[in-house]
């Protein structure tokens, strides 16, 4: 269970998150929609622990623990995962090396044994296959020279490997073609279970046809301004954000 309470955050002197509250029960999928520049990616980054943003008030509790007290890697080991809107490239580091290092770093932080390369390969091979990530891709330097869509698949593959308890997907659907969208959505759906919570940030109702959300929120000007069921997404598609932007301003 994730509970964000009265979160305020700024960068330099500019306040971006302005008293945001949100609760996600275990096993639920929440979607966040909202206009450009509303603070969606900022919220995701703050959940993951990006130090650039200064949190001036509020807390983010995950199963009772305040994530704001933890380093980004400790949050990761606790089960926080963020699929980046713009995944980074790491030249010269093959996806396999990166993934295994990350997996083992998390396991070490949790006091578990490291996976050897055989166990690692056994784990990644079938997942890569269902997500359409080729062997060649796994050997290539992480995200280097990958298309936008390939990078997004890589993000979902990493999520599947790391089996988080709370996954934040920041516009994972943008840049995907129709088929890739379905593959990625299936990947997410396969991970849905009683314990795992998702926060899916998107601009397009279409994604929510594939990943059925339990709750939809509208984020505008650093706050949640509306919360509803899946039908809210359909309404937004028709009406746009004009109403909310006006309200927030």
């Amino acid at each position: 269970m994730i509970s964000i309470k009265n979160l305020h955050a700024r960068i330099e002197e500019k306040e971006i998150i302005k008293g945001l509250s949100l609760e996600i029960e275990a096993g639920k999928v929440h979607a966040i929609m909202g206009p450009n520049g509303a603070g969606k990616s900022t919220l995701a980054s703050i959940i993951a622990g990006r130090e650039e943003y200064e949190v001036t008030d509020g807390e983010i509790l995950m199963n009772g623990k305040n994530l704001l007290d933890l380093e980004p890697e400790e949050r990761a080991a606790e089960g926080v995962f963020m699929a980046f809107q713009y995944p980074l490239e790491i030249p010269g580091v093959p996806m396999n090396t990166f993934m295994r290092t990350a997996l083992n770093a998390q396991r070490k932080l949790r006091g578990e044994d490291e996976l050897d390369s055989l166990a690692y390969l056994k784990k990644i091979k079938p997942l890569a296959k269902t997500l359409g990530v080729s062997d060649d891709m796994l050997k290539r330097a992480l995200n280097e020279g990958c298309s936008g869509g390939e990078k997004k698949r890589n993000e979902v593959l990493q999520m599947a490997m790391l089996e988080p308890t709370f996954a934040v997907l920041d516009e994972t659907d943008s840049g995907l073609d129709i088929d890739a969208l379905r593959v990625v959505a299936d990947g997410v759906n396969a991970l849905r279970n009683e314990q795992r919570s998702f926060l899916v940030i998107t601009h397009y109702q279409r994604l929510l046809d594939y990943i059925k959300p339990d709750v939809v929120h509208v984020l505008a000007d650093g706050r949640i301004v509306e919360t509803g069921g899946p039908e809210l997404a359909l309404r937004l598609e028709e009406e746009g954000y004009a109403k909310f932007v006006g309200e927030a301003a």
């Binding site: 622990g49 926080v80 990166f98 990350a102």
Partner: peptide, 14 residues
Amino acid sequence: ADAQLFYCRQRGLN
């Protein structure tokens, strides 16, 4: 880049 470091840390590396 800071963003590269953050990306790695998000995945569990210190």
